[in-house]
Structures are given as C-alpha cells and as structure tokens.
Amino acid sequence: MLESLSAFGGLVLLRDSIEWEGRDFLKALIKKSALCGEQIHVLGCEVSEEEFREGFDSNINSRVVYYDLFRDPLNWSKNGEAFPGGPLGTLRAMCRTTDPRPLTIVLDSLSWLLLHFPCNTVCQTLHALHYRDSFCGESSPVERVNVLGLLHEELHGPTEMRKYFLILLSSPQTQQFSILPDFSLDLQGSPLQSQPHPDPHTFMVDPTAHLTFNLRLSEKEREARDSLTLPFQFSSEKQQALLRSEPGQASSRILYEPDAYDDLDPEDPDDDLDI
C-alpha cells in the first residue's frame, strides 16, 4: 500500500495521536514523492519552515515549496500580505501552477484548518483541489493532484471524524514500517501475513539477560522437580495410610476433668424434642 501511495492519488489522510506523532511519517512520504519527481507544496501551519525542513537533504528541500503560515496565520502583525486569500486561498492557488509534473499538496495540518474554518468549507476546498474544478481553471496543465493531510485525532470528536472523512478513506489496511533518520521508509509488511523481521536499527534488549536468579532448569533439576510429591497431591498410598485403622483405636478414650465452676448438666437438653 505504501509503495503505491503516490500513485494512489486523491486525498490521503494521516491520523496521528499525541503518543505517536505523524509528522515524521508525513516527511517520509514527502521524500518518497519527491524522489518520484513530483512537485511538493506544503501548507505549513504548525511548525516553522526551519523545523519542517530539518532532516531533508538539499536535493529534497529544493523540490519542496513551503508556504509558511506558521509565523502569522491570522494576520495579527498586519503586515503579512504574503497570503492575501488566507490559508484556504493559498491552498486553492497552489494548483494554478504551470508545471505539468504531478503535484502533491501537503497539509500540515488538516486539524489546524478544521479548527479555524467550517468543516464543509474545508471539505469543498479539498474536493475542488482533487478534481481541479473551477478554482484551478480548466486549462491547468497539472497531470495529477494528490493531497496529503495530517490529522490529529484527539482534536476532533469521533462523530465529526466519521461524518466527514470515513467516506473518503478506502478500506483500512495494516502495515508495519519504520522511519529511518533520513526519512526513508523501511517497510515490513502486514503484521498478520509475515513476521516482522528484526529491525537492524533498534537494539533489542533481552529482559532475562542479567538476572540475579535462575529462570531456567537443567535436565536434572527438572527430573527432581517432577519426582517431588507436593503436600496437597492425593495419591493412593496416602489414601491407604489414612484409611488404615490404627491398632490402639478401640482402647482410646476421652479424659475430661471438669473445672471447678463448670456447670455440668447431666440432662439431655434435647430430651423434649422426641427425636
């Protein structure tokens, strides 16, 4: 699935959480697309351009056009006329390029757009980008437009997510991968079909390596353990031993010395019950 992501086309959503931030994966996908010769336009609302470009080599960086909305997204400084149409206007303007190469538009992040604009406006814009209608003009020479959006799932209610986006997603697949420091992907297949092969980049720690006690048994120890009868185990010998009548049993009797203040009643208390 991941190999064909760039050929997949349309809108690709990347859902991440606080524990597992998706920006590295986003950058890995950008690298993949850039190496395929696509033009990449990034709408950056969450991190500075410097931070976003960190880790890419100059070859990739030269293919990435970064629209820096991070510095002044709401035009508070009153001098930011760089993006007159606001974030969505910038987004629409992206596909009015004369470059015919396939275009990948990266939204970092879609969550930021959804928090600041009505959901249906965002959806319409994305739809228009994908189908390149009205906004981009009929004569847009771009061969194909892909949209790659990062979505922080905690920021949107489950109903909201379902309502607007699940329709856009194809059937989910699970695939394991690791992202290398240079943002290339190491695919490891789906977890159900193949065993994940040991990753050479992570050092596996054996938790049983340096213990102060012994976890394993030798053959001899195992035999000794198996031959041991535990006190609660009931064997036939034990049963015999318990059932065998003791020789002195008949002659045994109970000796009871009453205390000085004991009130001993010789009468049977249940006498009147007529049992």
């Binding site: 606080i18 969450e46 969550s111 928090l115 922080h152 905690e154 920021l155």
Partner: peptide, 14 residues
Amino acid sequence: DEENDLLLSGLSHQ
C-alpha cells in the same frame, strides 16, 4: 469539559 480537553490535546501536539 470538551473545551479544556481540546486545549490540552492541542497543546500536547505543539
């Protein structure tokens, strides 16, 4: 408190 949850998650991402 939904607003507070949104604030907390949003800041956690930043």
